[in-house]
Design a protein around this nucleic acid. Structure first.
Lengths: 317, 317
DNA sequence: ACAAAAGTGTTTCGACTACACCCATGG
DNA sequence: CCATGGGTGTAGTCGAAACACTTTTGT
């Protein structure tokens, strides 16, 4: 589609602003979800980013080419995440970035330049329940939240809902809400850094800095991406974008667990996945430590049969 | 948050582009979902739009003030929808618009200027199943789709999934996918208009123009909004943003039905809503044609109790 | 043999559906 | 008394959760 008409009244209203693209490239290796990070000029970690190239007719195309330029990876699955425009304000310009989520097969995605794969749970250690409840929640986060909410019941309610306290259930989707709350409370390094840059007081006297910080608001963008993937798992077959064409059910399960951040009941997982018609056997087998595993492939026909074909996490009720 | 540091490498990469905001204001009156539309200079219908005001620190704040300026309405619920950047390309500039969804109580939202409330199902007549299956689907849409997909099975599959044909179920959430398919097939007026502006052939020789057209790609933006609302109904208590503080269960049901586009089983709806703890009785009553109806209010505590408090449409399985 | 990993059967539970029915008011 | 809209009881169905158990390989 092109601009249908010279819309003077409209373009006149518009301001010029700095606009860029950025992409959260998400892959899983050795049961760890990882995000592609580049070292920026100041030694910070940034996700892939760049300008909108004018030759591309759609934003998605511009994004794909930006990523190919920047990190040399070809992207399979891409979706728009969110547009961030709160930061980077100064009298002359506003810095906008249109963030995308991209899922990649780690085998196909070579990291170039000064890039590295950064484990997501180094960024958000409190999000990984696979080896039990992360100890930092009860040791560091809960006490800090309690003292932050001491005099305001609304803060208490928010803390309870976001971190699943006082009877509320832990909701795996609320990755962003948790990061943002920790930022507000001053438990992540970016909060201190941004306060210093503004010349403000620290939001809290705490010396706690949970998880690895990133440049600008990139950790917030990655949190948005992780939350989005967790949500999408249950109603769209996005996991298969991160698997080879043939895979075992354990591979699939461990991948889902890595993204969801908790373990699943193996026998039920197998049945749910096959009963949903998501996969079909290829007839091939693969040797393992024990009994050889059957290889499966994604069954494209589910798309026609079910409105919401996904792996259905327990918390999705 | 402010820009933490002068990121020369980054800002240098950025291009200047025209960026604006727009808002889909959605309300329901007399069981009809309606969107606020303004007449533009050329007699077309446009949703509320404007520039990003530099004094606002967040995009959401900029949007709220833009809407207050433009149509004089104060917004309760607001969320970012999507950033559209495919249209309006020319060698000099790219026109970007960050679209927001806003839900309003029609009593509180006075329309000012040259604005009007436009019934959504005039834009998308094929989306309203409350009085039975819209006749246009089988009379106009299906034949056109079939002839469009005649020689390409992938087109056939896409048509089947999007419009629930050949055994696929109609998915109320796929509002945008349906509009986009109709655009591609050439069954909406915008397709013809945009092709003419490009100097291209019409995408189809058909003279069919389903639904009322809007300026630019605004109908596509409204489709995105309607799809988002339908999705959100089932897992967030967004409907209550469009109701007065006290309401009857019928009011609630008719509102949900208006948005979802199909009718619900009344006895079950009542129970699901109360069993979910979404509402509590106020003790007041309201005279009706028959037995007086009990008045209810939204019960805020659900937020603590359930991770996904929504009204749960049948198709959400 | 036994550890390790894959894979199956069966019961229980709870959410949603469908259908039949009762209640309170106005004309 | 009967039409209209409000409201309840109850049995059936389906998918998911939990638990116990079998199969096939490598060492």
């Amino acid at each position: 589609m092109t601009q249908p008409q010279v819309e003077t009244s409209r373009t006149a209203e518009r301001e010029r602003a700095d606009v860029g693209l950025c992409a959260v490239l998400l892959g899983v290796k050795d049961d760890q979800p990882e995000v592609l990070a580049l070292e920026d000029a100041h030694g910070g970690l940034a996700i892939a980013h760049g300008a909108i190239d004018d030759i591309d007719t759609t934003l998605e195309r511009a994004l794909r080419r930006m990523v190919e330029r920047t990190v040399g990876a070809h992207l399979a699955y891409v979706e728009q995440l969110y547009t961030f425009g709160d930061r980077g304000r100064d009298p002359q310009r506003r810095a906008l970035t249109i963030a995308y989520l991209a899922l990649v097969r780690r085998e196909i995605a070579p990291a170039r330049h000064r890039s590295q794969w950064l484990p997501c749970y180094q960024l958000f250690p409190w999000e990984d329940f696979r080896a039990g409840r992360p100890e930092q929640i009860d040791r560091l986060i809960v006490p800090a939240l309690r003292s932050w909410a001491k005099d305001d019941p609304r803060r208490g309610l928010r803390a309870d809902i976001t971190f699943g306290l006082s009877g509320s259930a832990w909701d795996p989707h609320r990755v962003l809400e948790r990061y943002e709350l920790l930022y507000e409370v001053g438990l992540v390094d970016e909060a201190r850094r941004d306060a210093q840059q503004r010349g403000n007081q620290l939001p809290s006297a705490s010396e706690i800095a949970l998880g690895r910080p990133m440049a600008l608001d990139h950790r917030r963008i990655v949190a948005t991406a992780l939350g989005r993937v967790r949500g999408k798992l249950s109603y769209r077959p996005v996991v298969f974008e991160m698997l080879p064409s043939e895979f075992t059910l354990s591979q699939l399960q461990r991948l889902v667990e890595a993204l969801a951040g908790f373990t699943l009941h193996t026998p039920n997982f197998r049945r749910l996945v096959s009963a949903a018609g998501l996969v079909e056997p290829t007839g091939h087998h693969r040797p393992t430590g024990g009994r050889p595993a059957e290889l499966f492939r994604f069954r494209g026909d589910v798309l026609r049969e079910r409105p919401t074909p996904g792996v259905g996490l327990p918390g999705a009720r």
